[in-house]
């Protein structure tokens, strides 16, 4: 049975009417029009749907919308601030850390969650934080370099 829930996404509160089996990913994309969060494998392997919920990176395809009630959700649309792109986004452009871009929103959200928790990560820690984000175009070296560079910029 559909129910009305409040979702707080990128600091804004929305009232949405959802079926209990709708995932957070589908509600973000189809009810709120936030299509930056991508649909990938639908089973928590690829990370294309990664968002940050209560400070933690999660696969939004494996979170029910009803489970996200009252939780602070940040999507890729909330990464850039009023002053422009987030340093992670700038570094991804500078280092050419994406080609087709499909995995990029998820990678950026995982990287953001990592840097919020650990402002000075090693390459090994970056790899571990991004192990749940698959990229089928560029390989991961440029992504690692971009995250490392953004971390340095954020610390300075």
């Amino acid at each position: 049975m559909k129910r009305s829930i409040e979702l707080t996404v990128n600091g804004e509160t929305h009232n949405v009417f959802v079926e209990p089996w709708w995932t957070l990913k589908d509600v973000l994309r189809e009810q709120l029009g936030l299509t930056g969060t991508k649909t990938g494998c639908e089973e928590g392997d690829c990370g294309a749907c990664t968002v940050i919920m209560e400070g933690k990176a999660v696969n939004s395809c494996l979170v029910l919308a009803v489970e996200a009630r009252g939780k602070a959700v940040t999507t890729i649309e909330g990464l850039a601030g009023p002053d422009g792109l987030h340093p992670l986004q700038e570094a991804f452009i500078e280092y050419g850390a994406f080609q087709c871009g499909y995995c990029t929103p998820g990678v950026l959200m995982s990287a953001r969650a990592l840097l919020d928790e650990n402002p000075n990560p090693s390459i090994a820690q970056i790899r571990e934080a991004l192990a749940g984000n698959l990229c089928r175009c560029t390989g991961y070296i440029k992504i690692e370099q971009a995250v490392l560079a953004a971390a340095g910029k954020l610390r300075s």
Binding site: G44, K56, N59, V63, A113, E128, A131, G132
Partner: peptide, 9 residues
Amino acid sequence: LGSVQIRNR
């Protein structure tokens, strides 16, 4: 176990 995203849930 799994990825950070999976371990968080």
